[in-house]
């Protein structure tokens, strides 16, 4: 049986179609979800895609957080429902307090678009279980506000509980604390990642096919449930 994975479209989302395509290539059924509805359409997991929800006005993700669909996602996530937030989706997850910390302006103030090497550090989350611990991957990174910031205590908790799921390698693109590229919640069902796995699923179109593993990981976890 195939699993239904929702992809949310906010006004200003850009990567919802690529995310849906990645879900399908991983073997799932991509279900479009709309920001203005609170209906999760019986999906078993959800992806919050990249882009500029609500124009990124006020703060990235700050207005998207109050969309009706987010109420349903926050409630479901607290019961273990898998959620992956990519780029703007990561910002929305932080603003929704599903993940700690915040994403702020890149330290060099530039919008960056590059193929970025990452090290996968936690393979126990729903979205990273298909990787080998310490595996290095290359996927695109493209954002202007990708600097992960949090207070010292939160950083200590994230590090000691192994909740840093991926770190930038060889190059510091944005001044994130401890080179953090992605984190998970305590339970491992909610993951936020600044770089874009959905743009690295086919060798013709991306720097690698490493990104696909995020999506196949979740689908395999759903089989086991």
């Amino acid at each position: 049986m195939s699993f239904r994975v929702g992809v949310v479209t906010f006004p200003g989302s850009l990567d919802d179609r690529d995310a849906a395509r990645a879900v399908e290539m991983a073997g799932g059924i991509a279900v479009p979800l709309f920001h203005a509805s609170d209906d999760l359409k019986e999906v078993q997991a959800v992806v919050l895609p990249g882009g500029f929800s609500y124009g990124d006005y006020l703060r990235c993700g700050a207005i998207a957080r109050f969309a009706p669909i987010m109420n349903s996602i926050v409630t479901a996530a607290s019961h273990g429902f898998p959620v992956l937030g990519i780029c703007n989706g990561f910002q929305v997850l932080c603003e929704s307090h599903l993940l700690p910390g915040a994403l702020t302006r890149n330290s060099n103030l530039h919008f960056l678009c590059r193929d970025q090497k990452l090290k996968i550090e936690n393979t126990n989350t729903v979205w990273t279980s298909g990787f080998k611990p310490g595996q290095e991957i290359v996927i695109p990174l493209k954002n202007g506000e990708g600097s992960f910031q949090c207070d010292d205590e939160t950083l200590k908790i994230l590090e000691s509980e192994g909740r840093v799921i991926a770190r930038y390698v060889d190059f510091d693109p944005n001044g994130s604390r401890n080179l953090i590229a992605g984190i998970s919640n305590e339970r491992g069902n909610v993951v936020g990642l600044m770089p874009h796995p959905e743009h690295a699923i086919e060798s013709l179109m991306g720097p690698s096919t490493d990104g696909l593993t995020f999506f196949t990981s979740a689908l395999q976890q759903l089989v086991g449930r």
Binding site: T104, R105, N106, S107, N108, L109, S147, Q149, D151, G175
Partner: peptide
């Protein structure tokens, strides 16, 4: 305002 301990690259620029 950003908290004092949060990096403010815009202010620095």
């Amino acid at each position: 305002m950003l908290k004092p301990e949060i990096l403010d690259p815009q202010g620095q620029a």
